[in-house]
Amino acid sequence: MIEIENVHKSFGNLEVLKGIDLTVQKGEVVSVIGGSGSGKSTLLTCINSLEKIDSGRILVDGTEVHAKSTDLNKLRRKIGIVFQQFNAFPHLTVLENVTLAPRKVKGMARQEAEEIAVRQLTHVGLGDKLGVYPGRLSGGQQQRMAIARALAMSPEYMLFDEVTSALDPQLVGEVLDTLKMLANEGMTMICVTHEMGFARDVSNRVAFFHKGVMAEIGPPEQIFGAAQHPETQKFLSSVR
């Protein structure tokens, strides 16, 4: 379970998170929508402490993420994150990209790591690209590789930060299909996304962020069918 309690975060004078409260249960898929600069991506990077928070607290399975005593490297193993920019490691083949962390972070033997990697890569449809360098892959393939790379650490939670935003429109579908597959398998996911169709079809709940505040949260039918907050209505009518 991920518990976010009254989290505040500023960059200089700009307060990007103004007291966020959100609890995500195991097996739940929560989509976060909202305009750019609304703080949604920042929240994700705060959950695995790539960004520090100013006040409030975030608990992952009861462990306080931003406590000094928390072993972040250990905690991050169970929180996979995939970014808008795929961040493939260009000097490693697809297989090496995926085996790197299991081997070097978890200390897994090469063979075992490769078995897991091949399984995850096949899972996301890249089983035939093992020896290829990321530079030769399309954006969609690189993004699916990044998903496999995160999954190879056997995370219990997956955070997706606008993972289709940097893709050509015709490549968006393949990545969304991968996310849907994960959701169907019961993965706990928080997806910051601009894909409203995806948010509606896959999420258990949808949260709308506006200027650093979670203005509204509810089941997709409510958000997309009968939004309460005027800003939600305004946002949705502008993206439709």
């Binding site: 790539l50 193993r77 920019q85 961040n87 790197l100 962390a101």
Partner: peptide, 26 residues
Amino acid sequence: PATQVRAGRSLGMGQAQAFRLIVLPQ
């Protein structure tokens, strides 16, 4: 790009480990 280190850290690597495995070879 700094995001390369970020990606490494998010996979559970320490700062030095991410530097050695991801930054140095590049």
